[in-house]
Measured scan of single mutants.
Amino acid sequence: MATVKFKYKGEEKEVDISKIKKVWRVGKMISFTYDEGGGKTGRGAVSEKDAPKELLQMLEKQ
């Protein structure tokens, strides 16, 4: 499965596409929420050019 690499609050993070719950576009950025486990929801964003094609496909399906 594909992963998304991004920075959040200065920390490098990587999340599996299957854990992503919601995806939306903000200008040229793709924002998303994902399941961190333990009932927590994380947030992240990547630029449109750095987003994996699976993430862009999720955006188109909504």
Rank of each mutant, 00 (worst) to 15 (best):
P52A: 04
K28I: 05
I30W: 03
T33V: 05
S31V: 10
E14I: 06
A45P: 01
M29N: 11
K40R: 12
I17F: 04
K21V: 12
L59F: 09
S31M: 05
F32I: 05
D50M: 09
K22I: 13
L56T: 11
K9G: 06
G37R: 08
K21S: 14
K61Q: 08
A45N: 11
Y34K: 00
L59I: 12
L59V: 09
K28F: 06
L56F: 06
E48K: 07
Y8Q: 04
K13P: 00
M1S: 15
L56S: 05
M29Y: 13
K13I: 11
M58P: 02
G39S: 12
K40T: 13
K22T: 14
P52W: 01
K5T: 03
D35H: 07
K40Y: 14
I20A: 01
E14A: 04
M58S: 04
R43V: 06
Q57C: 14
K7A: 05
R43C: 15
D35E: 12
K5D: 01
K19S: 09
V46N: 03
D50F: 13
G10Q: 02
G37M: 12
S31T: 10
T3R: 06
E12Q: 07
D50Q: 08
K13M: 11
T41C: 15
S18T: 07
D50I: 09
I20H: 00
G27W: 06
T41P: 14
V26L: 04
R25E: 04
E54H: 07
V15G: 01
E54F: 09
V26A: 11
S18I: 13
A51T: 11
A45C: 14
G37D: 07
I17R: 02
K28P: 10
V46K: 02
L56K: 09
V26T: 14
Y34G: 00
I20M: 09
K22H: 15
V4N: 00
G38D: 06
K40W: 14
I20W: 01
S47W: 13
E36A: 12
Y34F: 07
E12R: 07
K21Q: 14
F6P: 01
Y8D: 09
K40L: 10
L56G: 06
S31Y: 06
F6R: 00
K22V: 14
S31W: 11
Q62A: 10
A51L: 12
K49D: 14
G39Y: 13
V46E: 01
A2K: 07
T33G: 05
E60R: 10
K13L: 05
K7M: 05
M1Q: 09
G10K: 02
R43T: 13
F6Q: 00
K5I: 03
M29I: 05
Q57H: 13
S47D: 14
D16I: 10
L56R: 13
V23N: 01
T33Y: 11
Y8H: 12
M58K: 04
S47M: 12
V26M: 12
S18H: 10
E54Q: 08
T41N: 14
E54W: 05
M58V: 08
D16L: 11
K28E: 12
I17N: 02
S47K: 08
S47A: 12
L59Y: 12
T3G: 02
G42D: 14
R25Q: 12
T33N: 12
I17A: 03
G44D: 01
Q57E: 06
D35W: 11
E36S: 05
G37Y: 07
E11S: 05
T33M: 08
T3N: 03
G39I: 14
E12T: 10
E54Y: 04
Y8G: 02
V26S: 09
L59N: 04
T3D: 01
G44K: 00
K22P: 01
D50P: 03
M1E: 07
W24G: 03
V26Q: 11
V46R: 02
G44Q: 01
G37P: 10
V46W: 01
R43E: 15
D16C: 15
R43Y: 10
E54K: 04
V4L: 04
A2L: 13
E14V: 05
S18D: 06
Y34S: 01
V23S: 09
S18M: 07
G39R: 06
E48C: 14
M29H: 11
G10D: 07
L55F: 06
V15H: 01
R43H: 07
Y8V: 08
K49G: 09
V15E: 02
K28H: 06
Y8P: 01
Q62I: 09
T33F: 10
D50Y: 07
A2D: 05
I20C: 04
P52V: 08
I17S: 03
V26H: 11
M1R: 04
D16F: 12
R25K: 12
K61I: 14
K53Q: 14
D16M: 12
K5H: 05
E48G: 07
F6D: 01
G44V: 03
K21I: 13
V4M: 02
K28G: 12
D50H: 05
W24S: 02
E14Q: 05
P52N: 04
T41I: 13
K19F: 14
L59D: 04
K7P: 04
F32E: 00
T3L: 10
T3K: 13
E60M: 12
S31F: 08
K28C: 14
S31G: 05
I17W: 01
V26D: 04
K61D: 12
S47R: 13
V46F: 02
V4T: 01
E48W: 05
